[in-house]
Design a protein around this nucleic acid. Structure first.
Length: 831
RNA sequence: GCGAAAGUGGCGGAAUUGGUAUACGCGCUAGACUUAGGAUCUAGUCCCGAGAGAUCGGGUUGGGGGUUCGAGUCCCCCCUUUCGCACCA
């Protein structure tokens, strides 16, 4: 007998192409509103059309797709859309490098990537595809800008950018290279340039963004966001500068340690603090020049460089003084690069005795150190001998009227004192800054603003949207923004007075486009608004959002801010846009390094699909690592997944050998394993535990093959097993499952496997008839016996004591205690 | 420095959340079928020791300590790795 010759060859690549075509023709992945069924909006982060699809896209999209399919089989009306985040800097870079228009480059990439994505066999409803660079999309990005502006959440202020004086253009962070911070193209050191730019008031939602009640987001993401938002409690205290002519100006600081106010011996301002210039004006010419040069140098660094912790602190005395409001003392005011204008008030009070950073600064520049907190039960170290700041709690000393206040009351009492005297008040400060959305770029959504000499910045009326991005621009580097350079585009009329006006030539940050794309998927061609309200009511919020952890802070904070702002404006409902978030890990190269062309460790998915087919790729990506962890690509491991699917194929297609009815225990064993597997696979899909799903299906296959040699294939239970197996396989390997389903003759009757329901666990069948009774003596495994289910404790104990292993190891010992774990184990404690 | 996660065979990983450690797969070994095999099938594969053998004994989840009848899982200390944030006033 040679059963193989009757089995049709397994040709996954051809089979996949066939089904993808038929699915498209049948439209089985279209998701429409169906009030009869519960909805499930499964969203995966939209890709940037960078060129070719890489393995990371497969890793992000195919397990997410498998879960979406599972949810569909569970009875949900599932929407799993995909689109492209199509604006952005890479298009401009590629355009310049290859002398091709950014638009041409972007849309050609989309075309190619769409085709590559289709090979995955995902259940994407392409009617819902949205592309952020299409006017029918960015029209609404502009509309959202206007809504936020109208709600007083947008404003314009000067902000610094990195500017290349040679290219005459703004540089993005990634275009500035090296410690001397030079331009990537011409190597000219960059300068800092202040430009008027648009911001959104994300800080207004800082407090609410810290609340995660009611949403199921990973702990990691929540922690990252909490740290990003960085809430600190403390007090604002108003000092006063002390000019030589007797005048003074208020100088506000923020402190988390108001209880140390009597220990302030100097102050430090950010180099760009407005008071620096006025304070140094009273200094000698020499000092003024020195301060000016320090400030200029400090401001040339990035915030990251300025904040580098290992860098030695530097600073300079401005020549000015301030008055401490709690004791009237006159203290020197310094400026230093480690104080940032963007955090707190851009000014700090320095308490070297109780703050390590102030301590080091004071020691370096010979400034006074004055302890005002005495730690209880610890010896007092003379100031001259102090090695570090005393940061622990203690009793307030040398603190005027508050001397003697114990640690646990100090904070409250000082705040009350400040408020009573009118020199300070309780305050909360956030690390989070307002969102700068202006980009001096061509390839983005134009900011819909017009500047009128009469009326200033005027929003473009909604009925004039979109403000179209012109195609006929000079995008090769000329030293000017293409939009500024365009001969006619910027010239327009003021919407208010009709007089000549100019358009804003900056475009929007692409995070604007991606903050609301989940809404555009609802109705990508709808022209009555950003989305069709009927679609919104049915589909939103997003039930499950998957994507990389790298978006934990920026994108995932922006999109939450956007949603909350739109909720308050009345555009959307609910407090959160995404109920559940899950992150996939990264597929590394075989050398455990990040995949990159320069390392030569890139895995090309197209080649693998050509060789193994999409189903094998899907299965392997689910199987090879924990999804949220990822890991190095094992080039040989994929063979295991390929083998598994081939074995499935053979098992289903090999004709069953004629045999007598199998023994009842064979049938029971088959059904038990089947339903136990079903139970596990169901739970694992819920939990995004994809690797154990594939393992369980492999195990079940092995069991079925073993039982077949005992005649299991001649029982009705075999048909049941095949039916359930194909259903469980369908989300993982949709093409093969469909082919087998058809082969079984079921597609004709019931339609595609992918519209079938998920089978229910037969708990009766899954229940074990017998258990393995584990016998331990003093915690060590000594024997194992099979026993019927449902034994009482006494009976288990008796059986355990009767085993040979137990008897042997209990010889000469007295049983002190017997622990019985029902249905599982008996531990005999003896000595 | 701070925060988060992790450390289990030669490798990727599993373990019902305190109850049989190493499921599943890769790799490897032996055999079968083959002109051939990088195809397929069968058996074996954590380490040490004893035995011809089925087996038997001991050890093992980064290291050390603890709680417990019982610890990969809980607690404490240490080491290592990855990721994130970094003078935050």
């Amino acid at each position: 007998m040679e059963p193989e010759k009757s089995v049709r060859a397994f040709e996954p690549v051809a089979l996949e192409a066939k089904w993808q075509e038929r699915w498209e023709a049948e439209g089985i992945y279209r998701s429409d509103i169906d009030p009869e069924r519960p909805k499930h909006y499964a969203l995966t982060m939209l890709p940037y059309p960078s060129g070719d699809l890489h393995i990371g896209h497969w890793y992000a999209f195919t397990p997410s797709d498998a879960r979406a399919r599972f949810m569909r089989m569970r009875g949900y009306n599932v929407m799993f859309p995909l689109g492209f985040d199509a604006f952005g800097l890479p298009a401009e870079n590629a355009a310049i490098k290859r002398n091709i228009h950014p638009k041409t480059w972007t849309f050609a990439n989309i075309e190619r990537m769409r085709g590559q994505i289709k090979r995955m066999g995902n259940m994407v409803d392409w009617r819902r595809e949205a592309i952020s660079a299409e006017p029918e999309y960015y029209r609404w990005t502009q509309w959202f800008f206007l809504q936020l502006l109208g709600a007083d959440l947008g404003y314009r202020k000067k902000a610094a950018v990195d500017w290349c004086p040679s290219c005459n253009t703004t540089l993005a962070r990634e275009q500035v290279i090296g410690d001397d911070r030079h331009c990537e193209r011409c190597e000219t050191p960059v300068i800092r340039k202040e430009l008027a730019q648009w911001f959104f008031r994300t800080t207004r939602y800082a407090e609410e963004l810290l609340r995660f009640e009611g949403i199921d987001w990973p702990e990691r993401v929540r922690t990252l966001q909490e740290r990003w938002i960085g809430r600190s409690e403390g007090a604002h205290v108003t000092f006063r500068t002390d000019q030589s002519d007797g005048s003074g100006e208020p100088l506000e600081i923020f402190t988390t340690r108001p209880d140390t106010l009597w220990g302030v011996t100097f102050m430090v301002l950010a180099p760009d603090h407005p008071l620096v210039a006025r304070l140094m004006s009273q200094a000698s010419d020499d000092r003024r020049a020195e301060v000016e040069s320090y400030v200029e140098k400090a401001l040339r660094q990035t915030d990251v460089q300025r904040e580098a912790a290992d860098k030695e602190k530097s600073g300079i005395f401005t020549g000015g003084y301030a008055i401490n409001p709690v004791n009237g003392e006159r203290i020197p005011v310094w400026t230093a690069d480690y104080v940032l204008m963007g955090y707190g008030t851009g000014a700090i009070m320095a308490v070297p005795a109780h703050d390590q950073r102030d301590f080091e600064f004071a020691r370096k520049y010979g400034l006074e150190i004055r302890p005002v907190i005495r730690p209880e039960g610890e010896p007092i170290v003379p100031v001259a001998e102090m090695k570090e700041a005393m940061s622990h709690d203690g009793v307030m000393v040398d603190s005027g009227p508050l001397t003697g206040t114990p640690a646990d009351q100090a904070y409250e009492k000082v705040v009350a004192f400040l408020e009573e005297k009118g020199v300070g008040k309780r305050a909360v400060t956030f690390r989070l800054r307002d969102w700068l959305i202006s980009r001096q770029r061509y390839w983005g959504a134009p900011i819909p603003i017009v500047y009128c000499p009469e009326h200033g910045a005027v929003p473009v009326p909604e009925d004039q949207l979109p403000v179209l991005l012109p195609d006929d621009v000079e995008w090769l580097p000329t030293g000017e923004s293409p939009l500024k350079l365009h001969p006619t585009w910027r010239k327009t009329e003021c919407p208010l007075c009709g007089g000549p006006a100019e358009r804003e030539t900056d475009t929007m940050d692409t995070f604007m486009c991606s903050s609301w794309y989940h809404l555009r998927y609802l109705s990508p061609h709808y022209s009555g608004g950003p989305f069709d309200p009927a679609e919104y009511r049915y589909w939103m919020p997003v039930d499950s959002y998957t994507g990389g952890i790298e978006h934990a802070t920026m994108h995932l904070i922006y999109t939450r801010f956007f949603h909350k702002a739109c909720r308050d404006i009345g555009i959307v409902q609910g407090d959160e846009p995404m109920l559940q978030v899950r992150n996939q890990g990264i597929v590394l190269g075989a050398d455990s390094e990040k995949m990159s062309k320069s390392r030569g460790n890139v895995v090309a998915p197209d080649d693998l699909v050509d060789r193994y087919g999409a189903d094998t790729m899907r299965a392997f990506l689910m199987f090879f690592a924990r999804w949220e962890q990822g890991g190095p690509w094992n080039p040989r491991g994929i063979e295991g997944s390929a083998r598994w699917l081939r074995r499935v194929w053979n098992l289903f297609l090999e004709p069953a050998e004629a045999a007598a009815e199998p023994a009842p225990e064979v049938v029971a064993g088959l059904r038990r394993k089947l339903h136990q597997t079903l139970r596990q696979v169901t739970a694992d899909f819920e939990a995004f535990s994809f690797n154990t799903i594939v393992a369980a299906l492999m195990e079940l296959l092995n069991e079925m093959m073993a039982l077949r040699t005992q005649g299991a294939a001649s029982s009705p239970a075999w048909e049941e097993a095949k039916d359930v197996y194909v259903r469980m396989l369908a989300p993982v390997a949709p093409h093969i499952a469909e082919e087998l389903w058809e082969e079984m003759g079921k597609r004709e009757k019931h339609g595609s496997i992918h519209v079938q329901s998920w089978p229910a666990v037969d708990e009766e069948a899954a229940r074990a008839e017998e258990i393995t009774l584990v016998v331990q003596v003093n915690g060590k495994l000594r024997d194992r016996v099979t026993a019927p289910v449902g034994l009482g404790d006494e009976e288990m104990k008796e059986r355990a004591l009767a085993t040979e292993g137990a008897r042997r190891f209990l010889e000469g010992l007295t049983v002190r205690k017997v622990i019985v774990v029902p249905g599982r184990l008996v531990n005999i404690v003896a000595s």
